[in-house]
Structure formats: structure tokens, C-alpha cells
């Protein structure tokens, strides 16, 4: 892996905005073509690209990453697998796959992709909650104290903050369970 490509990994690991933007500049067009030429939309391409970067981020932050090829090759391979999996699931309903676009990846990467698909479901469902519930749960998951949550949310008491947290979390879990992906992904 070249020095420049190593910078991509470092940028991702550190969440460096400019470095991450260079990854988009360099590789987004190829992924856009990959997805849109295989039954997907621009929106699908955006989601696939983001998921692939998060898979790589998770692997490289845990120091699991052993790259034998280029960063671009890895990114392309992960994107192909993510889109291939999603196409396979869609094919039962609306899309027929003209070619097998999946790419061989080692098991840790396959597991990382599966994990990321689960996490994406959680994020998608969180966005469906009302703004109040989203904010409350973000504070709760960030391990803010109930008193801080009460104050930041403008609630009248800690008991009420507790009740709202329960209602919002139950609602999020219900939304996740009702999604068809919940069964497919085998949580």
C-alpha cells in the first residue's frame, strides 16, 4: 500500500474531514457507476459507499486491518459485496441480477459487512423517531446522567425523563423489529 493510500486509512480512523473528502473525490465516481449499472440508484450508491467506509473504519480502528492490496481495491471490493448482498435480497421482489457482482472477501470482512448492515438498520429507524426522542436517546446512549438529560431536554423532573427514555427506546426497538431486515439479518 502506498504512502498516499495509507493516508486514506489514517484519515478514516481519525475522522479527518479533509482526508475523508479526498476519499470521496477519488472513489465516489467508480462506486456510483458500479451501483447504477447494476440496478441501483444514486441514493443506493451513496448508502453503499458510506456503509463500506464504516466497515473499513471499524476494522482499522480495531487494528484488524491487514491490507495486501490497495485501499481503492479494498473499498471497491467491500462496495461490491454490500451491493451484491442488497441486490440478492431485493431480487426476490423487484430486481433480477444479471451478473454476480459479489467479490470474494475474507471472513472478517464478510462479518464486518453483516455487522454494518445491522447498524444501518438501527440508524435508519432512529431517523424515523420524532426529533425529541432522537435527541433524548442520543443523550442517553452518550451516558449523560438523567439530571443532565432532564435539564438539556427541558423536562420538569427526572422521573419524567426516565419515562420518556423508556417510551422512546421501546418505540425505536419496535420500529427495528417491524422492519423486514430485522429477520433477514438475524440479530
Amino acid at each position: 500500500m502506498s504512502l498516499e493510500e495509507d493516508q486514506y486509512l489514517k484519515a478514516l480512523r481519525r475522522g479527518d474531514g479533509k482526508g475523508v473528502e479526498r476519499i470521496y473525490e477519488e472513489f465516489a465516481p467508480a462506486i456510483f457507476r458500479l451501483v447504477t449499472r447494476n440496478g441501483g440508484s444514486g441514493e443506493d450508491a451513496r448508502d453503499v459507499f458510506q456503509s463500506a467506509l464504516l466497515v473499513i473504519f471499524q476494522q482499522c480502528r480495531e487494528e484488524k486491518l491487514q491490507l495486501s492490496g490497495s485501499f481503492g481495491g479494498l473499498l471497491y471490493g467491500v462496495c461490491r459485496n454490500i451491493w451484491g448482498n442488497r441486490l440478492q435480497k431485493k431480487s426476490f421482489r423487484e430486481v433480477s441480477i444479471s451478473e454476480d457482482i459479489k467479490h470474494h472477501l475474507e471472513e472478517p470482512w464478510q462479518n464486518g459487512i453483516e455487522e454494518e448492515e445491522k447498524r444501518k438498520l438501527l440508524r435508519d429507524k432512529m431517523k424515523e423517531l420524532g426529533a425529541d426522542c432522537q435527541r433524548l436517546l442520543q443523550l442517553f446512549f452518550a451516558r449523560e446522567s438523567l439530571e443532565d438529560i432532564r435539564r438539556k431536554m427541558g423536562y420538569s423532573s427526572i422521573n419524567y425523563a426516565t419515562k420518556r427514555k423508556f417510551v422512546c427506546k421501546e418505540k425505536l426497538i419496535e420500529l427495528i423489529r417491524r422492519d423486514r431486515r430485522y429477520q433477514e439479518l438475524k440479530f
Binding site: 475523508v20 441514493e43 451513496r46
Partner: peptide, 16 residues
């Protein structure tokens, strides 16, 4: 990082 990717995703692939 996800927040940054959301912003860049809109920039490079179009808004949701």
C-alpha cells in the same frame, strides 16, 4: 464520522 459521511454523501451523490 457518520455525520461527516452524511454531509459528503449529499455533496457527492445528491441529497436524500
Amino acid at each position: 464520522l457518520i455525520q461527516k459521511l452524511d454531509t459528503l454523501g449529499e455533496q457527492y451523490f445528491g441529497p436524500p
